[in-house]
Amino acid sequence: MTDSIYIRPIGLVPGPQSEHGNAIRLAGGMVYASRFAVVLRRDGKIAERWLASPDTMAEVLGGLPDEVGAEAEQQWANLTLAHPALELGSRTIRLDQPQVMGILNMTPDSFSDGGSNTDISAAREHAATMVEAGASIIDVGGESTRPGAKPVWEGDEIERVVPAIEACAAMGAAVSVDTRKAAVMEAALAAGASLINDVSGLTHDMRSAEVVAAASCPVVLMHAPGSGADLHEGGDYASVVFDVFDELRARRDAALEAGIAASRILLDPGIGFGKSLADNLALMNALPLFHALGHPLLLGVSRKRMIGAMSNEAEADARLGGSIALTTKGMDAGVQLHRVHDVRDTVQARNVWRGLRDAALTDFADLPG
């Protein structure tokens, strides 16, 4: 018999004063949580579920089975953990508010832009436009990860990404590289990248964890069910939310064992990777749960196929509205980094979202007490 525990925030509020202080600041950000579901899973099935608030959580945790008690206490502490800023080259990226990561595809077969930026001059111009529009990080990728895409030889991938990384670094941008290959990681870091974004969660290449640990750079571990060339294979879940949580925890633990510091690990639930529409929607609604793992979160929903599935099969370049809606949902859940194609529109949405959050902190200023 195997027990596992999960603490899922289910009641989010605009500020602690709306609950007379009986709320926590979720992951040190601009979102507050006042109600939580504590879920006990036994042999893959939900056995019990308790509701708690900050002032009753100690009582609920004290009544849990001994084998999950320490994990529950750690998750509760993680939910209030404020994450330090990312130091990416000369740039400091604060994680107490949502940040926008702009996508720079150097692939001729990208699902979203059809390779429109593969020329280095066009790539440089597009990157500069994203930085000017408010992107905190430029994420450079040289291999498409859409379903059915063919793998790219590491030498070709290096030739695609290194010039773009050098151009972005030269303009003072914080740069990440979207790759799952150790050789590409090494070349990208040498060219000026300071963050690794690995869609395989460091499982694709046996050397990748070693490279990240040696470089002491931050790394994003994304969930994808496929372990081989096709990241979308094997998406069979008993309960997608808890299964993805467990698998991300396992990949985090493997990274720690490889010598990667906990403070340098970010997590991504992998929306759209080996997941059905129902799976993706379930994960979007459960995003606050993933703060219980104790690491900053990245969300990549921009122009994803799930948007087309809910909007008469709109083409990728006609999914801005859905992209903004899903990204805002992520902001409501306290997600720190948002990987997007449409930087200017997303930054505008983020600024309005933040204005609403700032104003909410004074909504109850005139109440007694």
Rank of each mutant, 00 (worst) to 15 (best):
M1S: 03
D3T: 11
I7Y: 09
R8E: 07
Q17R: 11
H20V: 05
N22L: 06
A23K: 11
I24T: 10
A27I: 05
A27S: 05
V31I: 11
Y32C: 13
R35K: 08
R35L: 07
R42A: 00
D43G: 00
I46E: 04
I46R: 03
D55L: 12
V60F: 02
L61P: 13
L61N: 03
D66N: 01
D66S: 01
E67R: 04
E71D: 10
E71K: 09
A72F: 11
A72L: 12
E73W: 15
W76F: 09
A77E: 15
A77P: 08
A82E: 08
H83N: 11
P84Q: 12
G89C: 05
R94M: 13
P98E: 09
M101A: 04
N105T: 12
M106T: 02
D109K: 06
S112E: 04
N117A: 14
D119L: 03
I120V: 14
A123S: 06
R124V: 08
E125L: 08
A133Y: 11
S136Q: 08
I138M: 08
D139Y: 07
V140L: 15
G141L: 08
E143I: 01
T145I: 05
V152D: 01
E154L: 07
G155D: 07
E157A: 06
E157K: 03
R160M: 06
I165K: 04
E166D: 03
A169S: 11
M171R: 07
M171G: 07
G172Q: 10
V175H: 09
V177F: 04
T179V: 06
R180K: 05
K181L: 13
V184N: 00
A188M: 02
A190R: 06
G192S: 03
A193E: 08
A193Y: 05
S194E: 13
G201E: 04
T203K: 06
H204P: 15
R207I: 00
A209H: 01
S216C: 09
L221D: 00
M222R: 04
H223Y: 02
A224P: 02
D230G: 00
E233P: 11
A238F: 09
S239N: 10
V240M: 01
F242Y: 14
D243L: 15
F245V: 02
D246N: 03
D246C: 01
E247R: 05
R249D: 15
A250H: 09
R252I: 12
E257P: 00
G259I: 01
A261N: 05
A262R: 06
A262L: 05
L267V: 02
G270F: 00
I271S: 01
I271T: 07
G272D: 04
G274C: 08
K275H: 03
D279K: 04
L281N: 13
L283S: 04
M284V: 07
P288L: 10
P296I: 02
V301N: 11
V301T: 13
G308E: 08
N312S: 12
E313K: 11
A314M: 05
D317L: 10
L320G: 15
G322Q: 08
G322N: 12
I324R: 04
T327S: 12
K329T: 11
G330F: 09
M331Y: 12
D332L: 15
H338T: 14
H338L: 13
H341A: 08
R344C: 13
Q348H: 09
A349L: 07
A349M: 04
R357W: 02
D358E: 15
A360I: 02
A360P: 10
L367I: 10
L367R: 14
L367F: 15
P368I: 04
